[in-house]
Amino acid sequence: MPELNLIEAVNLALRSEMQRDAGVLVLGEDVGRNGGVFRATVGLLDAFGEERVIDTPLAETLIAAMAIGLATQGFKPVAEIQFSGFTYPCIDQIVNHAARYRHRTRSRLSCPMVLRAPNGGGIHAPEHHSESVEATFAHIPGLRVVAPSTPARAYGLLLAAIRDPDPVIFLEPTRLYRLFKQAVEDNGEALPLDTAFVEREGQDLTLVSWGAMMQDARAAADRLAEEGISVELIDVATIKPLDMDTILASVAKTGRCVIVQESPRAGGWASEIAANIAEHGLLNLFAPVLRVSGYDTIMPLARHEALYIPDTERILAEVRKVFEFAPKA
């Protein structure tokens, strides 16, 4: 079984599904001859030709709109936006059209498309290249938002996203693209959408995250294990619709929960998870649910991005607050 990094796993999923389904198309800026700015589409042009691997003009609204048009005609377009901050010109198309054609036409037309983009910071890039946009899209009815955190999940979830009959925003963890390798079998098997993964079972604390922050959450869980604290680690994976059943079941067992996100704090998806726990799991809690997040500021440029992005120490600090919490007598 080949060892692949996350970007290679994305490439493998695209290649694998394009081989299997002639309706799958790839489009975006520099995705053809150049193989994508992160090389997610490398080799696809030679393998499948320029009709199916479409180098588009430099126009993000057009890319989203073209994907919508193709999807309504029964194709399975996978559009790439080069950096998360450049998904914003697509938002009108995604919110007002992709998410709505099925609803607007009572399923006469539908929009089985995937919009892929790298998500989050940590790669010392210019402005607009490091934003965490998952909550922005997750607020929109009719969409699915998926954020893988390992090569194997990137492969399996991207297959699932392409096969899904509705629009999926697929946000890839930029700084994990080449961070580590993992065995990924090209077995054509999709992983389930709308389902969180319990990555590690534990008894004392539920640690919830997604995307690139999962890597820091894993490190925090390792450190806590050394201290004798057993962490149940959950990769949300599908941001929307959110699998609260898995999280609530875990919190019922551990009684403690910390949620880690990279995006700004207010209105982030950690807030949605915490609210759900408050609504449905309050009496299982020994301590308040705490959030670890980016700050409510503009994503800083490279010199300060490490200050902004939560790290293992910040996660551990919040975890300690949970364990130190003493209810009023």
Binding site: A65, A67, I68, G69, L70, Q73, Q93, H97
Partner: peptide
């Protein structure tokens, strides 16, 4: 919405 359906025609025509 005004005009936002027009670029979708690119994808539809490409499909045909």
């Amino acid at each position: 919405p005004i005009g936002s359906h027009v670029p979708q025609a690119i994808g539809v025509a490409y499909a045909l």
